[in-house]
Amino acid sequence: MKTDLIPAPVRSWLYGIATALIPLLSAYGIISEQTAPLWIALAGAILATGTALAYRPTRAQKQDEKGD
């Protein structure tokens, strides 16, 4: 069973985009300098949480392993 919500290459691309785009948005005054670190933290939290959720053990998987 494939559990990737966001495949690793896409996550890597999104991290790069987020860490480049957010400072640019701040430099052009679209987001404030005070909130830019919060936006980067949010992007990291979403991408990291998606990975953690994809690989967490579930009760159904544990029961399947016992039944084999």
Score class of each variant (00 low, 15 high):
L25C: 15
E65T: 13
L42C: 13
T19I: 14
G50D: 01
A48K: 05
A45K: 09
L42H: 13
P7D: 02
D68G: 11
R11A: 07
Q61I: 11
T35A: 11
T58H: 07
R59S: 01
S12G: 10
G44R: 02
W39M: 14
Q63D: 04
L25K: 07
L38M: 11
A18Q: 03
D4Y: 10
D64Y: 09
L21D: 08
L42M: 13
S12I: 14
P7A: 03
T51K: 15
A36F: 01
V10L: 15
I31T: 13
Q34P: 00
E33F: 08
S12T: 15
G29W: 09
L14D: 04
G44P: 00
Y15P: 02
T3R: 15
R56W: 07
I40Q: 09
I6E: 01
L42Q: 11
R11T: 05
Y55R: 15
D68W: 08
L53N: 09
A20C: 12
G16T: 08
G16F: 05
A36W: 00
K66A: 12
W39R: 06
L14M: 15
I46R: 03
P37A: 03
E65Y: 09
A60I: 10
G44E: 03
I17V: 15
Q61S: 15
A41D: 02
K2Q: 13
G44L: 08
I17P: 01
Q63H: 03
Y55K: 14
K62E: 12
E33G: 12
W13I: 01
Q61K: 15
S32M: 00
Y55F: 14
A60N: 07
E65H: 11
G44A: 10
L21S: 11
L14T: 04
L14I: 10
A27E: 10
G16N: 06
P57S: 14
L5K: 02
I31H: 06
L25F: 13
G29D: 07
P57L: 11
G29V: 07
K2R: 14
A45Q: 12
M1D: 11
I22N: 00
A18C: 12
P57H: 13
L24P: 06
A48G: 11
T58D: 01
E65K: 13
P37H: 02
L42W: 12
